[in-house]
């Protein structure tokens, strides 16, 4: 009976009335439900199941059921780089969100320097033995930026040979660090992220923390100049302390084909427990974009110009690192 009057008890009088009209063209007299302009009779069915099953727990279960059904039937969209938006938002983001908010309590500065759309290139320092800084960079953009842009990180060759990790990295929209992919993505107007230090940065000993390493061959500057994409320097403070690498056991690394084999105070001493990263305090700062469209396109063949830009990016990141390190009380606060 859509027009039956239902008197609900125990509600405050300032609660608003239902916005629907009854079948007799009179305004409905029922109180509206919380968070909706309609009463429980006129509530649109699509936004929830009526009656006893509208409890949030049930809804969540049915949402999960739909999600699983879609996944099992292959009914989802994946872009041509392998970015699976649904999986990233529903599964991966909640996992990294916990680390981001609770574990490392990441603080973000200068997010307004990141454009909502590319082409733009984020260049960041790299540290922490395992690439957690990459995951946190992506999470920061998803959670803090008003437009939640998807940043495409360029991962080193080795990453793509690792089972599961390579799979998830692809699903999160990242790709191989090579000129072809970087160019292709920037030309498509994507937001691309690079760690120019590469393994030299992520695998450096704890004693050299927050000291930027040499910037590879500077290929990232070349593609930025070629496409005219601005370079956004990014400094990540905190990732250095998650696994303080006191020794790099090279013989074992060479045997296993790794670029380094970290010995930390807890790993391999405590076994898998030693793999738990320390809960340091993180600060991620995005600096002002460094424009590259002021240079002519031909500048990409001029190594001196490229070195100059590369040095400028490096200096900016180093300065931001020192500044943010000063503002942090200690490792954990």
């Amino acid at each position: 009976m859509p027009d039956a009057q239902i008197i609900t008890l125990g509600r405050s009088s300032e609660q608003s009335k239902c916005a629907a009209t009854t079948s007799r063209n009179k305004p409905c007299q029922n109180f509206s439900m919380e968070g909706s302009p309609y009463c429980h009779v006129h509530q649109p069915i699509a936004s929830g199941v009526r009656g006893a099953s509208s409890s949030p727990g049930r809804e969540r279960i049915s949402e999960w059921r739909d999600f699983m059904r879609r996944r099992l039937a292959g009914q989802y969209y994946v872009d041509e780089y392998g970015y699976d938006e649904e999986l990233s938002r529903e599964i991966l983001l909640p996992l990294t969100k916990f680390l981001y908010e609770q574990w490392w309590r990441v603080e973000v500065r200068g997010i307004e320097n990141v454009p909502a759309h590319g082409p733009a290139l984020i260049a960041s320092n790299h540290s922490g033995t395992l690439p957690w800084d990459g995951a946190m960079l992506l999470t920061a953009l998803q959670l803090e930026h008003p437009d939640s842009p998807v940043c495409r990180l360029l991962g080193a060759d080795l990453l793509w040979t690792v089972p599961f990790l390579s799979h998830l990295a692809r699903k999160a929209g990242n790709t191989v660090a090579c000129d072809e992919d970087a160019l292709h993505m920037l030309k498509r107007g994507e937001l691309v992220g690079v760690f120019p230090e590469g393994f030299k940065g992520i695998g450096k000993p704890f004693s050299e923390r927050y000291r930027l390493q040499r910037f590879g061959r500077g290929g990232f500057v070349e593609v930025a100049v070629e496409t005219g994409a601005p370079i956004i320097p990014c400094a990540i403070v905190g990732a250095e302390e998650i696994y303080p690498m006191i020794y790099d056991f090279q013989p074992l690394a060479r045997l296993l084909g790794f670029p380094y084999f970290p010995i930390t105070p807890f790993f391999p001493l405590l076994g898998p427990l030693g793999m738990i990263p320390l809960p340091s305090k993180w600060i991620i700062e995005f600096g002002e974009p460094i424009p590259t469209d002021v240079f002519p396109r031909e500048a990409k063949d001029d190594p001196m110009t490229l070195f100059d830009i590369s040095d400028r990016v490096r200096d900016t990141i180093q300065q931001m690192l020192y500044k943010n390190l000063m503002s942090r009380r200690n490792w954990f606060l």
């Binding site: 191989v176 072809e180 292709h184």
Partner: peptide, 12 residues
Amino acid sequence: EPEDPAFFAEEM
């Protein structure tokens, strides 16, 4: 190969 680019153009 794992380190292959995302798209192969004809001249690669």
